[in-house]
C-alpha cells in the first residue's frame, strides 16, 4: 500500500510541476493577491502601533512586520484553491474521468497543490526578501520553535487541505457554491489571524476561535515561529491539530461515499 503511494506521488508531482511551469506567468499574477493582503494589514497594524506609542497587544511595529511576513509564507504553504474549481469539475463532467481512474482524485489535487507551491517559491522567496529589506522585521527565532514549526506547518496544510476538500464536496448537491465559499473565506479571514493577530481580536472572537480549526491552519505556526508560545502550548496545539486532522479525514471519507453515490455527470 505504502509502496503504491511512493510510486504514485513522484509521478503525479512530476507532471504537476511541468504543467505549473507552463503556466508560470498566470501563476505569478495569482501570487500578487496573496502578497498584497498581508502587506496591507502589516501597514495598517504598524500604523496603529505607532499611534499607540510603538506597541499594541504585545506587538511592536517591527513585530507586526515579522508576523505578517511569516504569515504570508505559512498561508502560501497551506492555502488551497479546491473550493474554486470543484463546482466546474462537476458541472463540466471532468470528474467523470477522474472517477474512472483507480486512484482517489484527492491524490492528484494534493500533488498539484504541492507542485504549485514549489514552483511559486521562485516568486514567494524574492518577495519575502524584498519585504524584509523594506519593513525591517524583528524575528526571535529559537531552535526548538523552528524544529516544532516543521510538523506544525505540515499539519496546518493537512488540516486545511482536508477540510477545504471536504467543503468543496458541497458542489455535489448544489451548483451555487459561490455564496457558501464566500462565507467560508470571510470566516477564515477573521478566525485564522489574517485580519489581526489573535491577541488583538475582541475576547469573544478569541474564545470562539480556539474552538474552531482555523487558528490551527495559519496563525498557530506563525505565533510559534515568532516565539509567542511556550513549548508546552506548542505541543498542546500540535495535538489539537492532530485531532482536527482526524476529524476532517473522517468527515471527508463519509461525505465522499454519499456524494459519489448520488453523482450523475453533466456534460461530456
Amino acid at each position: 500500500m505504502l509502496r503504491y503511494y511512493l510510486n504514485l506521488y513522484p509521478a503525479f508531482l512530476r507532471i504537476a510541476v511541468l504543467a505549473q511551469i507552463q503556466y508560470r506567468a498566470s501563476g505569478v499574477i495569482w501570487m500578487i493577491g496573496s502578497i498584497i493582503e498581508p502587506v496591507i494589514f502589516l501597514v495598517v497594524w504598524s500604523r496603529v502601533a505607532r499611534a499607540r506609542g510603538g506597541e499594541v497587544g504585545g506587538y511592536a511595529e517591527n513585530e507586526f512586520a515579522a508576523y505578517y511576513i511569516v504569515l504570508m509564507l505559512v498561508n502560501h504553504v497551506t492555502f488551497t484553491w479546491i473550493m474554486h474549481v470543484f463546482q466546474s469539475r462537476i458541472q463540466f463532467g471532468q470528474l467523470s474521468f477522474q472517477l474512472m481512474r483507480p486512484v482517489h482524485p484527492i491524490h492528484e489535487d494534493l500533488s498539484d497543490n504541492v507542485a504549485y507551491k514549489i514552483v511559486q517559491l521562485t516568486v514567494m522567496l524574492p518577495a519575502v526578501i524584498i519585504l524584509i529589506l523594506i519593513f525591517q522585521p524583528k524575528f526571535n527565532f529559537e531552535m526548538w520553535s523552528l524544529l516544532l514549526a516543521v510538523p506544525a506547518i505540515i499539519l496546518a496544510l493537512a488540516v486545511r487541505f482536508t477540510l477545504e476538500w471536504t467543503l468543496a464536496l458541497v458542489a455535489f448537491w448544489t451548483t451555487r457554491v459561490n455564496a457558501i465559499n464566500q462565507s467560508y473565506f470571510a470566516i477564515i479571514m477573521f478566525f485564522s489571524g489574517r485580519v489581526a493577530p489573535m491577541a488583538l481580536l475582541p475576547v469573544t472572537i478569541q474564545s470562539i476561535a480556539s474552538a474552531l480549526p482555523f487558528y490551527y491552519m495559519i496563525a498557530f505556526p506563525v505565533e510559534l515561529l515568532l516565539g509567542k508560545l511556550t513549548p508546552a502550548q506548542a505541543l498542546t496545539n500540535i495535538v489539537i491539530q492532530l485531532g482536527w486532522l482526524a476529524f476532517a479525514l473522517m468527515l471527508l471519507v463519509s461525505l465522499w461515499k454519499v456524494a459519489v453515490k448520488q453523482y450523475s455527470a453533466v456534460g461530456n
Partner: peptide, 29 residues
C-alpha cells in the same frame, strides 16, 4: 438573493475589519 447575500457579506466583513482596527485605536493615519 444570492447577490444580496454576497454583497451584504462582503460589506459586513469590511466593516468588521474596520471595527477590529478601531477597537485598538481611534485614528488611523
Amino acid at each position: 438573493w444570492i447577490q444580496t447575500f454576497e454583497s451584504l457579506l462582503s460589506m459586513a466583513t469590511a466593516l468588521a475589519t474596520i471595527a477590529i482596527v478601531f477597537n485598538q485605536t481611534d485614528s488611523l493615519g
